[in-house]
Nucleic acid binder design. Structure first.
Lengths: 199, 199, 199, 199
DNA sequence: GATGAATGAGTGTTCATTCAT
DNA sequence: AATGAATGAACACTCATTCAT
């Protein structure tokens, strides 16, 4: 890789980073190319040279982001730890991206970005499927629960806990996170208080 | 009520209805006053006569909507049925509004509407608090779980189930809804399969 | 005049008064019919019933105003006092209308009102001509000065002094007004300090 | 200065010129950005790129205009001529801007431009103060007249004479201008007919 | 390759005026 | 006769995108 390519890569990174931060803070709809360009220290025209359209910039940025995220998740999943520890680690990771995840999770508007969000979701589902499989195999998840239901449940729950971890106004993080994990594993009625495989 | 007032009320209803539908379908950011006006069979200027600004229209519409919704919920909550039946009824009602709820739930952008969403959320929290109280009193919810955690949990869960009910591509609604309720009450490990108060 | 006509006349007076005040405060361009109607305690539609257009309202209002003003001026002019005293009295009267006069004096824009302002100006010129004639006859004004020049000069000077009288931030009203009158009669070089006819 | 800057400067000049002409002809209130843009051969968006708001365009234009005007005045004031000749030269210059001056002089409406007009007026006052000082020093102006009064008087008088010079319907320009100058120096009673310092 | 500059197509909002009651 | 309500025609301003340098 020569000097030109390197500089180009660096600029693309800056643009991705600026887009990510601004989307996380304000959502897709309330930011404009000028803002992204300013924060990335390039001109708007440069962004168009690289990505063609604003939507395409978002698509590329999302693609880059989801791939690196999935890679980190997979690393945890294939590591040598108990299911519960893996869950906790992944959730902690999620906490870092929770604001951004909230942004991209519920957007089903006219934006052409939406079509791309579907592919992000698919990649995430593939991962969560592996997670569910592991959980069932290790006896942490009742086998008669359908995968489809569990997928939705995992995603929502992860957001929920990550949101709590990330909430800076929250004083009882530790306690509440533990309670949420308990809700996750044992439900509202809480027939059991400390978790070990039920098999 | 004379003829003027009656027609005005009717038009306001039309405008609220058009706004609601469009927000539900496309979100706050992707619709313009012209569209709302067209769908409501009025001119944009009429909307400004009534509401002054676009934001104010949204605020009024949300206020109207949340009040009627809370009223219906309260009716169910104070009815003479078991906790589980109440939950199911409320969730079924939610299913009708799920798309709209998804829209307004995650929006924390620069829009001045946001400030108003907080008050919507507060009204909802008041209701969910009552729901949690009832659940604890009737023995369906473990008393050592903090209210704060439960509030978030309830809201998320309701959305989750309602989303399933509302998902038209879904074939196994009945079965999946039942599974989700089970997850809700008894968690991932599913120590118990049929629910009756644990007290 | 029956009760109906009386009420109509009263409303027209209210509308004239509201228009006058608002034009004096904000100028022709920055006030709207709604504002005038509100201040006059009528509906905008009523104004249109009476005057047809906004411009026509202004024309009627100006006409009414200038006629009453000219009437008062003429009364002073035909009174039995010295020229200097008459001048002072008229200037004092002007002070009350100075804000309004400033408004209408310099407006030569696209407004159709302009065409009417010309007729206001004509009426004023007729009066000022009489004033000049009196001044020349009584020996206060050098006869070799052309009427045309004197007309402009009088109008400007009246505004200038009236403006000083009306300026509430001004501490030395008395002194400054006297100086201005001196400038008027004897000019910058002030060859004379107390004025008596030079004939 | 590279090609970019040069073209930008040229366009700004065009925009200033177009704004100036239109304001002079129709006043601030009756012209829109589209019109200015059309006359300046740019798009409205370009104007917003440069100036941000319509008001800001006016402010910038006025600032540019007053500075160049003051510069020309100062040149005359510091030149090596008699007071009367300086006065005549400045008045002749004013005649070129009289329409525009009439526009900006009396506007005290709700427009945010007004706040800026104050600073224009201040710059003019500084200049007129110098003029008055010179006149007093050279014995053309009676020293017991207050500066405050003289400032207003000068401004009004300049407008008056300039207006006459500029009035194309006027046949006797020469004669009338001379009469007005006489009124200025020696007042209505005209105790003196040819002007030389009275000291 | 990078960018300063320019713009067309909207978007929220205002307001004189009309119309049905 | 009076007015509540409705609207068409503007207008200030934004922003994704293009283009000449």
């Amino acid at each position: 890789m020569n000097g030109f390519e390197e500089r180009t890569k660096k600029k693309i990174k800056q643009i991705f980073s600026a887009s990510f931060d601004l989307v996380a803070e304000y959502g897709f709809n309330k930011i404009n190319v000028q803002e992204i360009a300013t924060r990335a220290n390039v001109s708007p025209a440069t962004i168009y040279n690289y990505f063609g359209t604003k939507d395409n910039l978002f698509k590329s940025m999302l693609n880059d982001w989801i791939d690196s995220k999935i890679y980190e998740y997979e690393t945890i999943l294939t590591s040598d730890q108990s299911f519960e520890v893996k869950i906790k680690e992944i959730i902690t990771m999620e906490a870092d991206n929770i604001q951004f995840l909230n942004r991209i999770n519920k957007i089903k508007d006219r934006s052409p970005v939406h079509s791309f969000l579907v592919s992000v979701e698919e990649k995430l589902e593939v991962f969560f499927q592996k997670l569910v499989d592991t959980g069932k195999m290790e006896g942490y998840i009742s086998k008669h629960l359908s995968d489809r239901v569990l997928l939705t449940h995992f995603q929502l729950f992860f957001h929920e806990i990550a949101h709590h971890i990330n909430d800076h106004t929250n004083q009882n993080k530790e306690e509440e996170t533990s309670q949420l994990l308990q809700l996750f594993f044992y439900g509202l009625s809480s027939c059991k208080l400390s978790g070990s495989p039920s098999s």
